[in-house]
């Protein structure tokens, strides 16, 4: 085994950005890029993220599409006659998919804690809030992977998509906000956890009720009143309604902007609360 050559001279001219917002942005970018690199370098992460919503379309959508057209039109209520169930379901599935991505953000944080990498990060002048925000946004970005594939899949299933560019932009921004909100929520409640199982348990607990009480799968008009009350505040439903208006019904209106506003408030509130929680409770081990 060779030893180091102490004769190598080292330049001592590294330059440090000041501890200002620019410096924090540099730290944020480092951590955020790490999240993206790690996501896209792991083919299984991509495959599973993609397959999950696709299976909804294939199995659930496939079954529901077999209903007689007349019954489907009654069932879908306010939709224009002849609307396929798949085109109704697609926006809902995309919104629902954003709920579980928070779980992945949480799991990657717990992995960093257990393997000690969180220590490596926090031994540098990086604040816990920066770590938290990079994880939350990294998770939200992972959720976007499913969008292009879902659209291709929907087209392959014969769904006709509409909408103008502005509507589509609003819809995608809405999905990012939804994903960010849920990622921020998950990361906040698992900030002090080091248990692999916690994120999965929480995900199972909240996904089912929030999925059904959202209007993502079925029109809220058929809900009992207590479920409709949940749907009225459930951000998943707002995202589904926004994207359905744009893609399925081709009607992007002021109402949709209020949906977008609601999602923005949801994401901002979760990020704000989460940042405060993480600054205090994000533990190294």
């Amino acid at each position: 085994m060779s030893t180091a050559a102490p004769t190598v001279s080292l330049p001592t001219d590294v330059v440090r950005s000041p501890a200002t917002r620019t410096g924090q942005l540099q730290q944020f970018w480092g951590l955020f890029a790490r999240e993206l690199i790690k996501t896209f370098r792991n083919p299984w992460v991509i495959v599973i993220t993609l397959v999950q919503p696709f299976m909804w379309l294939a199995f659930f959508g496939g079954m529901m599409s077999e209903l007689p057209t007349a019954e489907l039109d009654t069932f879908l209520l306010h939709a224009p006659p002849g609307t396929s169930y798949l085109s109704f379901l697609l926006p809902g599935v995309l919104a629902t998919g954003m709920m579980s991505i928070g779980m992945f953000g949480s799991m990657s944080t717990i992995q960093d804690k257990r393997f000690g990498f969180m220590k490596r990060i926090l031994i540098t002048p990086t604040s816990k809030a920066t770590v938290y925000l990079a994880k939350a946004l990294g998770a939200a970005m992972r959720g976007l992977v499913q969008i292009p594939v879902m659209i291709v899949a929907a087209l392959a299933f014969g769904v006709q998509l509409h909408g103008d560019p502005l509507g589509w932009l609003a819809w995608i921004v809405g999905l990012v906000l939804l994903g960010l909100g849920f990622a921020a929520f998950f990361l906040a409640i698992t900030a002090s956890s080091t248990d692999w199982q916690t994120p999965g348990v929480i995900s199972n607990f909240i996904t089912m009720p929030l999925m059904f009480a959202s209007g993502a799968m079925f029109p809220t008009a058929i809900y009992p009143s207590w479920m409709r009350a949940i749907a009225d505040v459930n951000p998943v439903g707002y995202s589904a309604a926004l994207s359905r208006d744009v893609m399925t019904f081709n009607q992007f209106t002021v109402t949709d902007l209020t949906y977008l506003g609601y999602l923005a408030i949801f994401a901002a509130a979760m990020v704000l609360i989460g940042t405060l929680v993480a600054s205090r409770y994000l533990r190294v081990e």
Binding site: D13, V14, V15, R16, S17, P18, A19, G23, Q26, Q27, W29, G30, L31, A33, R34, I121, T124, P125, T126
Partner: peptide, 10 residues
């Protein structure tokens, strides 16, 4: 990554 976290340029 270490350079970003230590806010280094150059």
């Amino acid at each position: 990554l270490q350079a970003q976290l230590q806010r280094l340029s150059d």
